[in-house]
């Protein structure tokens, strides 16, 4: 019995099989529980990171392009704004000149017209006054003629009349 124990103690060969089997079993359990899902997750993560890096690179390029575009647009709009302001100034200037010219022309024509009217008016007034004077003088003459005429008076009258005629003629 003692010998049997001693022999057994030197080599418990069953343990070898036990450990081999349990190791293989453990390997299988680890594979199912941990190895497969964790490795898959690690792979997914590294894929995602690499994707993210690519995307970040792409976004950076896009952003740079957009910034460039915006810069160009800004420069364009500045030029445009300058043109607009310049145009507006020119337009304004032109319009002002036009308005002033127009006003001057208008004023001139109004003035001319007014002068013409005034002259006409004066002419008319003179003409009518002359007519009135003629009528009046005829009337006065007729009234005077109806009175008794003395020789001197008659003479003076004729003189004055003749004088008046001369003046009338002159004017």
């Amino acid at each position: 019995m003692l010998l049997h124990l001693a022999v057994a103690r030197t080599l418990y060969n069953g343990d070898t099989i036990f450990y081999a089997v349990s190791f293989i079993l453990l390997m299988w359990i680890v594979k199912v529980l941990a190895w497969k899902p964790v490795t898959k997750m690690m792979q997914d993560r590294s894929d995602k990171i690499s994707d993210d890096i690519d995307n970040a690179e792409k976004s950076r390029k896009d952003a740079a392009a957009m910034a460039e575009e915006r810069k160009a647009a800004l420069a364009g709009s500045r030029v445009e704004a300058q043109t607009i302001v310049k145009d507006a100034k020119e337009n304004g200037q032109q319009q002002r000149e036009q308005i002033v010219t127009q006003a001057q022309t208008d004023a001139q024509s109004l003035k001319d017209k007014a002068q013409k009217d005034i002259a006409q008016e004066r002419e008319d007034a003179l003409a009518s006054a002359r007519n009135d004077v003629a009528d009046l003088s005829v009337e006065i003459a007729s009234k005077l003629l109806q009175r008794e005429l003395k020789a001197d008076d008659q003479k003076a009258l004729i003189d004055s009349y003749i004088e008046g005629l001369g003046e009338q003629h002159e004017s």
């Binding site: 124990l5 057994a8 103690r9 080599l11 418990y12 060969n13 069953g14 343990d15 099989i17 036990f18 450990y19 349990s22």
Partner: peptide
């Protein structure tokens, strides 16, 4: 170490339990 026999193989209790 306590041992026992099974299927003609020798097993040790300590290794089985610890394992």
């Amino acid at each position: 170490v306590a041992t026992f026999q099974l299927f003609g193989l020798t097993f040790s209790v300590a290794n089985l339990v610890s394992g």
